[in-house]
């Protein structure tokens, strides 16, 4: 299975690019997964957000769309060991209230789906960059989260005296902050979660191995306005990745802009300058990475026609500008 992750800041067209990649896939079977909690892909493809797994047909192209979602996972986990009503409520709150926890869960789901999947090509749409850091942290920390956390304390607490007294102190501390009943619920929840620790650890290992593999592609979507600070973010995020490439969406580089002083020409000229600088910065920070561009097109209606037109666009490779 050939896997491609699609990353990018908010508002650059990452969702559109994810669909384009699935649409232009030449493999016999393709799946498009989204880790983005906003489920933008579903809106763009005009599919109800109530669904999580759908076969999509766009013009004459077919692919499978799957939104990774924490509550589904809860149902599966509950089948293995029954969670009582209190734990269920706490789980829902954890999912709603703790972005990192949601990220851990969506990664576990991703790992499960990859294991189940028989598709030849898998495109994975991620949340916008700032949130994606959480995902990467989750990938790196999934194992330590479960091995070092209180879950292990909860499991071992019954066995070791020292650990048991640590648990007791933790319990007392948490009572001060969240009240007695809540503290009990937290620990019940941790115990329940602990029964799945193995599975989570396996998922963490698998995903880490997968995303750092040379076979796995990582495509970063940018636009000419992408600030330099985002490139530094991308450097951090992509450090362990082996196979990185970039696409500059809304490119105006090949366009000739008239020398007029109206807001349109000024905007395009500004974009052109920014794009030129962006490419220089990319070449400097990521010398081994391929850079492509997609021309700036009229968009904004979110119709199927617009989506197909976009999905059929050709990405062209960038030549290094002669001046530095």
């Amino acid at each position: 299975m050939k896997i491609q992750f699609i990353w990018g800041p908010g508002g650059v067209g990452k969702s559109h690019l994810s669909i384009l990649q699935a649409y232009q896939s030449t493999y016999a079977s393709t799946a498009l997964f989204t880790l983005d909690p906003s489920r933008r892909l579903f809106d763009l493809l005009q599919i109800s957000r109530e669904k999580t797994r759908v076969d999509v047909k766009l013009k004459n192209k077919k692919f499978f769309l799957c939104g990774l979602e924490a509550t589904q996972l809860f149902e599966e986990l509950s089948q293995k060991s029954i969670a009582n009503a209190k734990v269920r409520i706490f789980y829902e709150q954890m999912v709603k209230g703790l972005q990192e926890f949601r990220e851990y869960l969506s990664l576990i789901q991703l790992s499960d789906e990859i294991n189940k999947s028989t598709y030849e090509r898998l495109v994975i749409d991620t949340p916008p960059l700032q949130e994606a850091f959480g995902l990467q942290r989750a990938m790196n920390n999934l194992q330590s989260f479960f091995s070092q956390s209180l879950i292990q304390f909860a499991l071992k607490g019954q066995q070791a005296k020292i650990l048991h007294s640590t648990m007791k102190h933790a319990f007392e501390l948490s009572r001060v902050f969240i009240g007695k009943k809540s503290a009990e619920r937290v620990f019940e929840f941790l115990e329940w979660l602990g029964t799945h620790a193995d599975r989570f650890q396996k998922a963490a290992d698998q995903l880490t191995k997968l995303s750092y593999s040379e076979e796995t592609e990582h495509l970063f979507v940018l636009s000419p306005e992408t600030a330099f600070v985002r490139l530094e973010d991308i450097q951090k995020l992509s450090k362990p990745f082996k196979n990185i490439s970039f696409v500059i969406n809304r490119s105006v580089f090949d366009e000739k802009i008239p020398d007029e002083n109206d807001s349109f020409c000024n905007e395009m000229r500004e974009f052109k300058n920014l794009e030129s600088k962006l490419i220089q910065d990319l070449k400097r920070l990521f010398p081994k990475s391929e850079i492509s561009r997609l021309p700036y097109q009229l968009m904004g209606d979110d119709t199927e026609e617009e989506l197909i037109r976009f999905s059929e666009s050709r990405m062209t490779k960038v030549d290094v500008p002669k001046s530095t």
Partner: peptide, 8 residues
């Protein structure tokens, strides 16, 4: 979620 304590 929290029935008491400083966070409540």
């Amino acid at each position: 979620m929290f029935d008491g304590g400083s966070l409540h």
